[in-house]
């Protein structure tokens, strides 16, 4: 039996809305340590890695490790029926072929349940090595979203260059060229405006903006996002989900041949 009760139910809605355009069907893996998902987009250029720890749920029971294949589009439709403040409970029998979502209003005066058919999805899991990143930039998630949106009107690739005085996002196309530089400001009076750069050595990498834009759909999940980069390696775009875990994206670089 798998049963998980999430008081901040809208978190699940935000997670699914953040990934449903990148990944259509995916396996959610349940174990005693938590609820995770790892999936690549169809082009295998980007990867989503969700991890929600069991101690972040109000109640979490997983008698046997199980993998639940779901259509993220259908899951999003079901979660749209949940109230923003509803408590969400997921339930699945060990050998069942459905998963039930129960939504309870805060005053418990409205309870609804939706049953979703599970799918058989053969997903190849990738081993993501621990990487000693040359640079990790942490900036307001809304700022990252704006940069990606602004630059995608200029070109379809962005060069992200991290140096000690800042991180520069550059793009060029038929319209022209654009450079957006964000400087470190750990002294910003408001914490949510802080930008920090942990630099071991300068690094510059080129990425397709359409994926970076898609990752920014996770903005509602966290105040900040971290970009971790190392030469000729995928970038890790990391949204920390407070007290629960993270929603991470990896994107392979474009390399000069």
């Amino acid at each position: 039996m798998f049963e998980a009760r999430l008081v901040q139910g809208n978190l699940l809605k935000k997670v699914v809305d953040a990934v449903k355009d990148l990944v259509t069907d995916a396996n959610f893996d349940c174990s005693s340590s938590g609820f995770t998902l790892q999936a690549m987009d169809n082009s295998h250029v980007s990867l989503v890695s969700l991890s929600l720890r069991s101690d972040g749920f109000e109640h979490f029971r997983c008698d046997r490790n199980m993998s639940m294949g779901m259509s993220l589009g259908n899951l999003a439709k079901i979660l749209k029926c949940a109230g923003n403040d509803d408590i969400v409970t997921m339930k699945a029998a060990d050998d069942g072929d459905t998963v039930t979502f129960m939504f309870e209003s805060p005053k418990e005066d409205r309870v609804s349940d939706f049953e979703l058919k599970l799918m058989d999805i053969d997903s190849e899991h990738l081993g993501i090595p621990d990487t000693d990143y040359a640079a990790t930039v942490t900036l307001p998630a809304a700022e990252y979203q704006r940069i990606c949106r602004d630059l995608s009107s200029i070109g379809d690739t962005v060069v992200i260059s991290a140096t000690k005085d800042g991180v520069k996002f550059s793009s060029s196309g038929d319209v022209g060229t654009a450079n957006i530089t964000v400087r470190q400001n750990t002294t910003a009076d408001k914490k949510e405006e802080q930008v920090s750069i942990d630099l071991k050595e300068p690094v510059a990498l080129t990425f397709a903006l359409r994926y970076l834009n898609s990752f920014a759909k996770a903005t509602p999940l966290a105040s900040h996002v971290s970009l971790s980069m190392a030469r000729d390696l995928p970038v890790m775009v990391d949204y920390q989900i407070s007290d629960m875990g993270h929603l991470r994206f990896y994107l392979a670089p474009k390399i000069e041949d």
């Binding site: 250029v45 990867l47 990738l126 392979a252 474009k254 390399i255 000069e256």
Partner: peptide, 14 residues
């Protein structure tokens, strides 16, 4: 020429 790589070029399939 910029070549778009795939993640399997960097991460091993388990």
């Amino acid at each position: 020429l910029l070549v778009q790589y795939g993640l399997p070029d960097f991460f091993t399939a388990l």
